[in-house]
Amino acid sequence: MRSELLRFDDWTNPVPPVEREVVSMTEETDAKLPPLLFVPGLGHGAWAFAEHWMPAAAARGFAAYALTPRPGGDLRAQAHDVVQVAASLPRQTVLVGHGAGALVVAYAMGRYPARAAVLAAPVMDGWPALGAALRVNPLGTLPALFGGRLRLHRKQLFGPDMPGERADEIIARLDARPRRELVTHGPAPRPAGNPPVLVVGSPDDRVVPRTSLDRTAARYGGAPLLFPGMGHELLLEAAWAEPIAAILDWLGKELET
Protein backbone atom coordinates (compact mmCIF):
# COMPACT_ATOMS: atom_id res chain seq x y z
CA MET A 1 0.00 0.00 0.00
CA ARG A 2 1.27 3.45 -0.87
CA SER A 3 1.10 6.66 1.17
CA GLU A 4 -0.47 9.78 -0.35
CA LEU A 5 -0.13 12.52 2.24
CA LEU A 6 0.92 14.87 -0.58
CA ARG A 7 -0.12 14.51 -4.20
CA PHE A 8 0.68 16.49 -7.31
CA ASP A 9 -3.02 16.57 -8.25
CA ASP A 10 -3.79 18.60 -5.13
CA TRP A 11 -1.72 21.43 -6.55
CA THR A 12 -2.52 21.20 -10.24
CA ASN A 13 -6.16 20.08 -10.08
CA PRO A 14 -7.65 20.88 -6.65
CA VAL A 15 -10.97 19.38 -5.62
CA PRO A 16 -13.75 21.95 -6.18
CA PRO A 17 -15.28 23.37 -2.99
CA VAL A 18 -18.77 22.20 -2.07
CA GLU A 19 -21.29 22.76 0.70
CA ARG A 20 -21.14 19.53 2.67
CA GLU A 21 -24.12 17.94 4.39
CA VAL A 22 -23.01 16.73 7.81
CA VAL A 23 -25.49 15.31 10.33
CA SER A 24 -24.37 15.27 13.97
CA MET A 25 -25.47 13.79 17.29
CA THR A 26 -23.31 15.27 20.03
CA GLU A 27 -25.50 15.82 23.10
CA GLU A 28 -24.44 14.19 26.40
CA THR A 29 -21.33 12.65 24.88
CA ASP A 30 -18.00 11.99 26.59
CA ALA A 31 -15.44 14.61 25.56
CA LYS A 32 -12.64 12.11 26.27
CA LEU A 33 -13.84 9.74 23.55
CA PRO A 34 -12.93 10.27 19.89
CA PRO A 35 -15.70 11.38 17.54
CA LEU A 36 -17.01 8.95 14.95
CA LEU A 37 -17.43 10.03 11.33
CA PHE A 38 -19.75 7.75 9.37
CA VAL A 39 -19.38 7.59 5.57
CA PRO A 40 -22.32 6.06 3.68
CA GLY A 41 -22.10 3.94 0.59
CA LEU A 42 -23.47 4.12 -2.93
CA GLY A 43 -26.91 5.71 -3.16
CA HIS A 44 -27.07 6.46 0.57
CA GLY A 45 -26.90 9.70 2.52
CA ALA A 46 -26.20 10.60 6.12
CA TRP A 47 -29.78 9.54 6.89
CA ALA A 48 -28.76 5.87 6.61
CA PHE A 49 -26.54 6.12 9.69
CA ALA A 50 -28.85 8.54 11.50
CA GLU A 51 -31.54 5.83 11.60
CA HIS A 52 -29.79 3.52 14.09
CA TRP A 53 -26.01 3.51 14.30
CA MET A 54 -25.48 7.17 15.16
CA PRO A 55 -27.96 7.13 18.09
CA ALA A 56 -26.39 3.89 19.31
CA ALA A 57 -22.93 5.45 19.25
CA ALA A 58 -24.15 8.62 20.96
CA ALA A 59 -25.78 6.49 23.67
CA ARG A 60 -22.34 5.01 24.36
CA GLY A 61 -20.80 8.48 24.75
CA PHE A 62 -19.38 9.01 21.27
CA ALA A 63 -20.02 12.22 19.34
CA ALA A 64 -21.39 10.93 16.05
CA TYR A 65 -21.24 12.60 12.63
CA ALA A 66 -22.27 11.41 9.18
CA LEU A 67 -21.28 12.92 5.83
CA THR A 68 -23.50 12.71 2.76
CA PRO A 69 -21.39 12.15 -0.38
CA ARG A 70 -21.23 15.14 -2.71
CA PRO A 71 -23.47 14.68 -5.79
CA GLY A 72 -21.48 13.35 -8.73
CA GLY A 73 -18.24 13.39 -6.75
CA ASP A 74 -15.48 11.01 -7.80
CA LEU A 75 -13.47 8.92 -5.38
CA ARG A 76 -10.81 11.59 -4.92
CA ALA A 77 -13.38 14.29 -4.15
CA GLN A 78 -15.25 12.08 -1.69
CA ALA A 79 -12.05 11.11 0.14
CA HIS A 80 -11.08 14.80 0.23
CA ASP A 81 -14.42 15.65 1.87
CA VAL A 82 -13.94 12.97 4.51
CA VAL A 83 -10.46 14.27 5.31
CA GLN A 84 -11.69 17.86 5.54
CA VAL A 85 -14.58 17.02 7.85
CA ALA A 86 -12.48 14.72 10.04
CA ALA A 87 -9.78 17.39 10.37
CA SER A 88 -12.40 19.91 11.48
CA LEU A 89 -13.56 17.80 14.43
CA PRO A 90 -12.16 18.49 17.90
CA ARG A 91 -10.32 15.20 18.38
CA GLN A 92 -8.61 12.56 16.27
CA THR A 93 -11.51 10.85 14.56
CA VAL A 94 -12.65 7.27 14.02
CA LEU A 95 -13.75 6.71 10.41
CA VAL A 96 -16.59 4.27 9.71
CA GLY A 97 -17.47 3.48 6.10
CA HIS A 98 -20.14 1.22 4.66
CA GLY A 99 -20.13 -0.39 1.21
CA ALA A 100 -18.49 1.92 -1.31
CA GLY A 101 -18.14 4.37 1.58
CA ALA A 102 -15.59 1.95 3.05
CA LEU A 103 -13.50 2.42 -0.09
CA VAL A 104 -13.71 6.18 0.41
CA VAL A 105 -12.55 5.72 4.01
CA ALA A 106 -9.64 3.57 2.84
CA TYR A 107 -8.50 6.35 0.53
CA ALA A 108 -9.07 9.02 3.19
CA MET A 109 -6.87 7.08 5.63
CA GLY A 110 -3.96 7.70 3.29
CA ARG A 111 -4.32 11.43 3.96
CA TYR A 112 -5.72 11.58 7.50
CA PRO A 113 -4.24 9.78 10.56
CA ALA A 114 -7.48 8.29 11.88
CA ARG A 115 -7.72 7.10 15.49
CA ALA A 116 -9.19 3.88 14.11
CA ALA A 117 -11.32 2.78 11.19
CA VAL A 118 -14.20 0.39 10.54
CA LEU A 119 -14.95 -0.97 7.07
CA ALA A 120 -18.50 -2.38 7.08
CA ALA A 121 -19.48 -4.66 4.18
CA PRO A 122 -16.68 -2.97 2.22
CA VAL A 123 -16.88 -2.74 -1.57
CA MET A 124 -13.13 -2.48 -2.05
CA ASP A 125 -12.97 -4.28 -5.40
CA GLY A 126 -15.86 -3.51 -7.69
CA TRP A 127 -15.43 -6.51 -9.96
CA PRO A 128 -16.69 -9.17 -7.49
CA ALA A 129 -19.56 -6.87 -6.49
CA LEU A 130 -20.47 -6.30 -10.13
CA GLY A 131 -20.38 -10.02 -10.83
CA ALA A 132 -22.59 -10.74 -7.83
CA ALA A 133 -25.07 -8.04 -8.90
CA LEU A 134 -25.30 -9.44 -12.44
CA ARG A 135 -25.97 -12.93 -11.07
CA VAL A 136 -28.58 -11.89 -8.52
CA ASN A 137 -30.24 -8.99 -10.33
CA PRO A 138 -29.21 -8.78 -14.00
CA LEU A 139 -32.10 -6.60 -15.19
CA GLY A 140 -31.56 -4.07 -12.42
CA THR A 141 -27.79 -4.00 -12.90
CA LEU A 142 -27.43 -3.68 -16.69
CA PRO A 143 -28.69 -0.03 -16.89
CA ALA A 144 -25.97 1.00 -14.43
CA LEU A 145 -23.30 -0.27 -16.82
CA PHE A 146 -24.34 2.48 -19.23
CA GLY A 147 -24.60 5.36 -16.76
CA GLY A 148 -28.12 4.68 -15.53
CA ARG A 149 -29.51 4.02 -12.08
CA LEU A 150 -28.76 0.76 -10.32
CA ARG A 151 -32.15 -0.74 -9.50
CA LEU A 152 -31.71 -2.85 -6.39
CA HIS A 153 -34.07 -5.34 -4.79
CA ARG A 154 -34.42 -6.61 -1.26
CA LYS A 155 -32.66 -9.96 -1.81
CA GLN A 156 -29.47 -8.10 -2.71
CA LEU A 157 -29.45 -5.95 0.40
CA PHE A 158 -31.28 -7.65 3.27
CA GLY A 159 -31.47 -10.95 5.08
CA PRO A 160 -34.66 -13.02 5.38
CA ASP A 161 -35.63 -11.44 8.73
CA MET A 162 -36.09 -7.97 7.24
CA PRO A 163 -39.81 -7.10 6.81
CA GLY A 164 -40.57 -6.66 3.12
CA GLU A 165 -42.42 -3.37 3.50
CA ARG A 166 -39.57 -1.83 5.48
CA ALA A 167 -37.01 -3.08 2.95
CA ASP A 168 -38.98 -1.51 0.10
CA GLU A 169 -39.16 1.81 1.96
CA ILE A 170 -35.37 1.91 2.26
CA ILE A 171 -34.77 0.87 -1.34
CA ALA A 172 -37.08 3.66 -2.52
CA ARG A 173 -34.73 6.19 -0.87
CA LEU A 174 -31.63 4.90 -2.65
CA ASP A 175 -30.29 6.60 -5.75
CA ALA A 176 -27.39 4.38 -6.72
CA ARG A 177 -25.50 5.47 -9.85
CA PRO A 178 -22.13 3.67 -9.86
CA ARG A 179 -19.08 5.37 -11.33
CA ARG A 180 -16.70 3.44 -13.56
CA GLU A 181 -13.87 3.99 -11.09
CA LEU A 182 -15.48 1.56 -8.65
CA VAL A 183 -13.95 -1.16 -10.83
CA THR A 184 -10.99 0.74 -12.31
CA HIS A 185 -9.49 2.40 -9.22
CA GLY A 186 -5.99 1.57 -8.04
CA PRO A 187 -5.03 0.09 -4.68
CA ALA A 188 -5.94 2.14 -1.62
CA PRO A 189 -3.00 4.02 -0.10
CA ARG A 190 -1.19 2.90 3.02
CA PRO A 191 -2.98 4.34 6.10
CA ALA A 192 -1.25 7.29 7.71
CA GLY A 193 -0.28 6.54 11.29
CA ASN A 194 -1.07 2.80 11.08
CA PRO A 195 -4.50 2.94 12.81
CA PRO A 196 -6.31 -0.23 13.91
CA VAL A 197 -8.82 -1.29 11.27
CA LEU A 198 -11.83 -3.56 11.79
CA VAL A 199 -13.63 -5.22 8.87
CA VAL A 200 -17.21 -6.32 9.53
CA GLY A 201 -19.62 -8.07 7.19
CA SER A 202 -21.82 -11.06 6.60
CA PRO A 203 -21.01 -14.37 4.90
CA ASP A 204 -24.52 -14.12 3.42
CA ASP A 205 -23.96 -10.69 1.82
CA ARG A 206 -25.03 -10.84 -1.84
CA VAL A 207 -23.05 -7.72 -2.73
CA VAL A 208 -19.66 -8.43 -1.12
CA PRO A 209 -18.48 -12.06 -1.37
CA ARG A 210 -16.92 -13.68 1.67
CA THR A 211 -13.61 -13.94 -0.18
CA SER A 212 -13.57 -10.16 -0.56
CA LEU A 213 -14.16 -9.70 3.17
CA ASP A 214 -11.27 -12.04 3.95
CA ARG A 215 -8.99 -10.30 1.48
CA THR A 216 -9.79 -6.81 2.82
CA ALA A 217 -9.32 -7.85 6.44
CA ALA A 218 -6.00 -9.54 5.63
CA ARG A 219 -4.84 -6.36 3.92
CA TYR A 220 -5.18 -4.57 7.26
CA GLY A 221 -3.71 -7.39 9.31
CA GLY A 222 -6.77 -9.15 10.68
CA ALA A 223 -9.81 -11.31 10.02
CA PRO A 224 -13.37 -10.11 9.37
CA LEU A 225 -15.98 -9.99 12.12
CA LEU A 226 -18.95 -11.82 10.61
CA PHE A 227 -22.70 -11.67 11.24
CA PRO A 228 -24.38 -14.67 9.58
CA GLY A 229 -27.93 -14.28 8.35
CA MET A 230 -27.61 -10.57 7.62
CA GLY A 231 -27.42 -8.89 4.22
CA HIS A 232 -25.34 -6.04 2.86
CA GLU A 233 -27.25 -3.31 4.72
CA LEU A 234 -25.82 -4.04 8.15
CA LEU A 235 -26.73 -0.56 9.42
CA LEU A 236 -30.41 -0.82 8.38
CA GLU A 237 -31.09 -4.53 8.84
CA ALA A 238 -33.63 -5.85 11.32
CA ALA A 239 -30.69 -6.93 13.51
CA TRP A 240 -28.78 -3.64 13.04
CA ALA A 241 -27.97 -3.44 16.77
CA GLU A 242 -25.63 -6.45 16.70
CA PRO A 243 -22.94 -5.05 14.39
CA ILE A 244 -22.80 -1.58 15.94
CA ALA A 245 -22.62 -3.03 19.46
CA ALA A 246 -19.70 -5.22 18.40
CA ILE A 247 -18.02 -2.28 16.66
CA LEU A 248 -18.31 -0.08 19.74
CA ASP A 249 -17.07 -2.90 21.98
CA TRP A 250 -14.03 -3.37 19.72
CA LEU A 251 -13.39 0.34 19.66
CA GLY A 252 -13.58 0.52 23.46
CA LYS A 253 -10.89 -2.13 23.74
CA GLU A 254 -8.69 -0.38 21.17
CA LEU A 255 -8.96 2.90 23.05
CA GLU A 256 -7.72 1.23 26.22
CA THR A 257 -4.46 0.18 24.57
Rank of each mutant, 00 (worst) to 15 (best):
D205M: 01
D205H: 00
V197I: 13
V199P: 00
A117K: 06
L89Y: 09
T141P: 02
Y107C: 00
Y112G: 02
L145G: 00
A121L: 07
I170M: 11
A79G: 09
R179Y: 00
A172H: 04
V94R: 04
A176D: 09
R210D: 12
V85A: 09
L152I: 12
G148Q: 07
R206K: 14
T141V: 07
G140W: 04
D81R: 08
T184V: 03
R190S: 15
Q84Y: 00
R219L: 14
A144N: 12
Q84C: 07
A217K: 03
G159Q: 12
M124R: 10
N194W: 08
L134K: 02
G97V: 05
L145R: 01
A116N: 01
N137Y: 10
P187A: 15
L213G: 04
V105R: 08
T141N: 01
V83T: 07
P209T: 07
V105Q: 01
R179V: 04
D168E: 15
V83K: 06
A120V: 13
A108S: 07
V82Y: 05
V96R: 04
N137I: 08
V136L: 11
R111Y: 02
A87L: 00
A132K: 14
A192T: 14
G101E: 05
Q156C: 11
A129N: 11
Y220Q: 05
Q84E: 15
P189L: 10
R206E: 06
Y107N: 13
M162A: 00
D168I: 06
V199W: 01
D214K: 12
Q84K: 14
N137D: 12
P128L: 01
L150W: 09
L95N: 06
R206G: 08
P189G: 13
L134G: 08
L89N: 12
E169R: 12
V123H: 00
F146N: 01
A192R: 15
P122D: 06
P209N: 08
D214G: 09
P122L: 08
V83I: 08
R135M: 11
V123A: 12
P90Y: 08
T141I: 06
R206I: 02
S212E: 15
A176H: 09
A108P: 05
K155S: 13
L142Y: 01
L134Q: 03
L130W: 02
P196T: 07
R190D: 15
R173K: 14
G140V: 03
G159F: 10
D205G: 01
P128F: 04
G101C: 03
P187K: 08
R115E: 13
V207H: 00
R115Q: 14
V123T: 13
A218Y: 03
Q92T: 14
Q84F: 00
V118D: 11
A79I: 06
D205N: 10
H185V: 03
L134D: 07
F158K: 00
T141M: 07
Q156A: 14
Y107K: 04
G147H: 06
G186R: 14
A87W: 00
L213A: 10
P160W: 11
P122F: 07
A176C: 11
L142V: 15
L119W: 07
G99T: 06
L145W: 03
T211S: 15
R177W: 07
N194F: 12
V105F: 04
P122I: 05
D161S: 14
L213E: 08
A121Q: 07
T93Y: 06
L130H: 04
G131C: 05
T216A: 13
P191F: 04
A192C: 09
L139F: 15
